[in-house]
């Protein structure tokens, strides 16, 4: 293989749906590697970081957040139509995020609870964006790891499939030679949470909260069973599984 040569700089856009903005901020903070990428990409749309923003078509779009209203779904569809590659950026875009706790109550009831006057938008449930559009690559994490965003962009530029760790948070936790929370009887989501954070929380003496969403083949039922054995209530278990990725197939049905 000869050196990768890009004819023109790829046009990259970063859009935001319902989300906190934290994943986009990670990009601003992504350091040297991200700056090196700027030799190969032009960030033409990034409203939180620049004032001049261009319309599509784009080569790569990163979408942060989940579509939580009819208007956002429409917007997402337009974004998809404007780009060659669409990347789901962060756990909201991948699995519905924190806001998907709304999925377990009728939307109308929640709208009544939250808004004094009927909102101008038309709220919906919160799912990963692949519920509505085709997604070419996923970067999980709340927030994302900047190095993984860089990896995805590099892969798309080279035309190869991005590869991320196949393992759970537990594997990284073991490699860092931490004591296990679950073995001490403290609930932890590590066994079924996608690795790649280098077991950040367990290594800082906090159990894993599952912010990166499920592994490829999570046995949610078996972890829930273990949490019950440790004395968790149905409500505790529901809260654990719904915290970040309630809309994922693997976590949605747990503790219901």
């Amino acid at each position: 293989m000869a050196q990768v040569k890009m004819k023109e700089k790829a046009k990259v856009a970063i859009f935001k749906l319902s989300s906190c903005g934290g994943c986009q901020l990670q990009l601003v903070d992504a350091g040297e590697d991200f700056l090196k990428l700027l030799d190969h990409i032009d960030i033409v749309y990034f409203p939180i970081a620049k004032s001049e923003n261009l319309d599509g078509p784009y080569d790569i779009v990163l979408v942060e957040g989940s579509a939580c209203s009819a208007e956002e779904i429409e917007h997402l569809r337009k974004i998809r139509a404007s780009t060659k590659y669409l990347v789901a950026l962060g756990t909201c875009a991948c699995f519905g995020g924190l806001q998907s706790i709304r999925n377990f109550e009728p939307t109308a009831k929640l709208v009544d609870m939250v808004y004094e006057k009927p909102p101008k938008s038309h709220p919906t449930k919160s799912f990963g964006i692949d519920e509505y559009v085709k997604v070419d690559a996923y970067v999980v994490g709340c927030p994302v790891e900047p190095s993984e965003v860089v990896e995805v962009i590099k892969s798309l530029l080279m035309g190869v499939k991005p590869r991320f760790p196949p393992y759970s948070v537990c594997v990284e936790c073991k490699l860092r030679e931490n004591e296990c929370f679950l073995l001490k009887g403290i609930p932890c989501m590590g066994p079924i949470t996608a690795g790649g954070c280098n077991a950040l929380c367990p290594s800082s003496n906090r159990p894993c909260e599952g912010c990166r969403g499920p592994t490829k083949d999570p046995n949610s039922k078996a972890l829930a069973k273990l949490l019950f054995e440790l004395g968790a209530t149905n409500e505790d278990v529901r809260r654990k599984f719904r915290k970040y990725a309630a809309a994922s197939m693997a976590f949605a049905g747990v503790g219901v």
Binding site: C170, L175, P191, I192, T215, D217, P218, N219, A222
Partner: peptide
């Protein structure tokens, strides 16, 4: 049915 497929067993 019990296994979490976490990969700890092979790691250790």
């Amino acid at each position: 049915d019990e296994c979490l497929a976490c990969g700890v067993c092979t790691t250790v």
